[in-house]
Each structure stands twice: as structure tokens, then as C-alpha cells.
Design a protein around this nucleic acid. Sequence first.
DNA 1: GGTCATGATGATACACTATATCAGGCCAGC
DNA 2: GCTGGCCTGATATAGTGTATCATCATGACC
Lengths: 176, 176
Amino acid sequence: MSDHAGHAHHGAHHGHPRGGDIEASLDRAAATCLARGAQLTELRRQVLRLVLDSAQPIGAYALLDRLRGERRGAAPPTVYRALDFLIEHGLIHKIERLNAFVGCAEEPGHGHTHAHPHPHQFLICGRCGSTAEVCDESVAGAVAAAAGRLGFHVHRTTVEVEGICAHCHDTKSTSG
Amino acid sequence: MSDHAGHAHHGAHHGHPRGGDIEASLDRAAATCLARGAQLTELRRQVLRLVLDSAQPIGAYALLDRLRGERRGAAPPTVYRALDFLIEHGLIHKIERLNAFVGCAEEPGHGHTHAHPHPHQFLICGRCGSTAEVCDESVAGAVAAAAGRLGFHVHRTTVEVEGICAHCHDTKSTSG
DNA sequence: GGTCATGATGATACACTATATCAGGCCAGC
DNA sequence: GCTGGCCTGATATAGTGTATCATCATGACC
């Protein structure tokens, strides 16, 4: 079945699970971009930092508010252009159900982009709002098989699961 | 694995694949609602008819335009409230990637609702814009397994696959 | 009949999400 | 210095979805 599955991230219970890690991730992201002939400019780096720094999926306009702390004239296109770039290069994902963005759980440098994404699924907790990105190949395989049966050629797959995370299910109190 | 998979619908190539079928579907939908203590009012029936009548997924504001043909003062809440009801009762689905709505491919009366949905996935052709709803249990099973491994309790699963449908892939011309 | 709660719809305004478009700045290469 | 490409600034607008209050019908209950 699934040879590797499931590393949870963006947990809302732990505040900011990363700290100085983020700067290291940004450096790796910059290197990855460079290797592909693109550049992680200061603006894009700022937006990526804000996304990674968020404990939960964050919306474009929330990003915009925070971005304005460091860039006075920031406007919607400012943040959307940066987001498009980051998605294009596989550094972040968009969660369609939430109209929000999260950092990619896979480290960059694996050659995955928007055109050639790595398989990924999101588990969205309806109680605490946290999300986990899992990378389960059996899910991707089942999707590919079902699509293939109909002669459908898959480009991209969006899998977003809504439910209750283990933490919230264990502690049925108001701790979420 | 997957005991049953794949009935394609909403094909854009065939114009309106159904005709008088729609009225029969509406009647069955009304009966299903009644059996559950809800009512498919004239407004909801009109909106459901418009959704079913659309060859492709249709947006809320496109529905609103058409609805105004039969209901002069229709406003956004008019159509959104009807859509919410129809989704709640499993009569239509929302495709998140498209912000659009399609009729449920499963006939009503199977007891599935928004709270207890039947497994379903969408194949979205990026060339002709058609969508197919498939009901593959192996996909749902893989998702459930992956989630369960992390202790996540699944409520609802959104699977939306973007790619090229068999028809468009066969006829690589501009016929899409 | 009168009253009241419920659910559905009408109607207005607003919030949130995303894009189009044009202008200016920076830099590499000729 | 000019050009072309890329990035950003800035303004306006399009597209999607909700909040809120008023109105109206229905049915329960006294």
C-alpha cells in the first residue's frame, strides 16, 4: 500500500512550531529558485516567511495586512503575485476550501513544481482550524487509477479532508 | 479494491445530455426532501433545475442571472440560500476549484447528505471545461486509511482532479 | 379568532477574494 | 543609451459570498 505517509504540520496547538528554522527554509527556497533560473526576491521572501510563520492556513488579505508592516504601499496584486510565484515553484500550496495558503511540507529541491507537483493531501480540523499536509502515494494512486479507467489524463489533484484532528478528538474540551 | 467506479456526467460535448429527465429528477428530489421533513420549494426547485440543466458546472452569479428570468427580484442571498439547501441535502455538489455547482450524479434517496455524503470525486477537463463525477470507493478508502493513520476523523472529503478528459485527448483539435 | 413560533423569501448593504491594467524601476546585453 | 525582460507600485474593478432586517405564509396552541 502506502510506503510513506503522513507528516503533520501547521499544528495550531503548538503556536509556531518552527522558529529560526524558517530562515533556513527560506535560504533553501532561495537556492532552489536560483537553480531553476528564478529568484526569491525580498518581497517573495517576505511573503513566504509570513506564510511559514503562520500557525494556520492564512488568507491573502491577512497576509496583506501583515505585509504592510514591512512594505507600506502593499496592495492585493503585491501579495497575489508573490503567492502565484510561490505556488508555481511548489513552495506553498493553496487550500481551496479555505481560500488560504500554507507552506509546502516537502522541502524544496525535489523538483516538484506547480506543473509537476508532489502528491499531497490536506487534513483540515473543523474544530481548531489546524491543517496537516500528508503525502500519501496510495491516495494519489487510487485517484490516478480511477481517472485512468475513464481515459482521463491527470495533471493536478486536490484532496482536502475536513474532519477532527487527533488532538481535538482526544481532548474534547475547549482547548482547541 | 474499487467495486464500482466512474459514471461520467455533465459532458460539455453533448449539449444538454438530459431533457425531460430533469423533471423526473426534480420530482424524486422533492420526494426525498419530503421524506426527511424538508421541502423542495418552488425556488429551490427552480435553482436545482437550472443547475441540472447546465451542461457544465455553473457559478452562483450565472445561476442568479438565469433565475432572474423567472424571479424578478432575485438577489445573491436568494440563490445562495437555495444552493446551501441543495448541498445540505446532497442534491448538488460544489466544485471548490471552480466556485461552481453541479448536480449530484447519484440519484437521491440513498440517504446521503452533506453530513453523510457519498464518496465522490470530480474530474475537471482543463480544455473543454467539462466535469465528470466519479464515485470510487478505493479513493475514499485510501483517504480514510491515510487520515486514520494520523488519528484524524474524516467528515467530508473533497477530491478534484484537473487534467484532460478522454474526449479532448483523443481529438487534439479545437473541437473541445 | 388571536397569538406566537418557525421557516422561507424579499431586499439592501456589505465583506471577502481575486484580477486587469498601466506606469515606473532595475538590470543585462548589445 | 537603448532595448527588452522582469519585478514592483498603484489604481480600479470584477467575482464570490454573508450579514441583517423586513415581510409573509404556515401551523401549533390557547
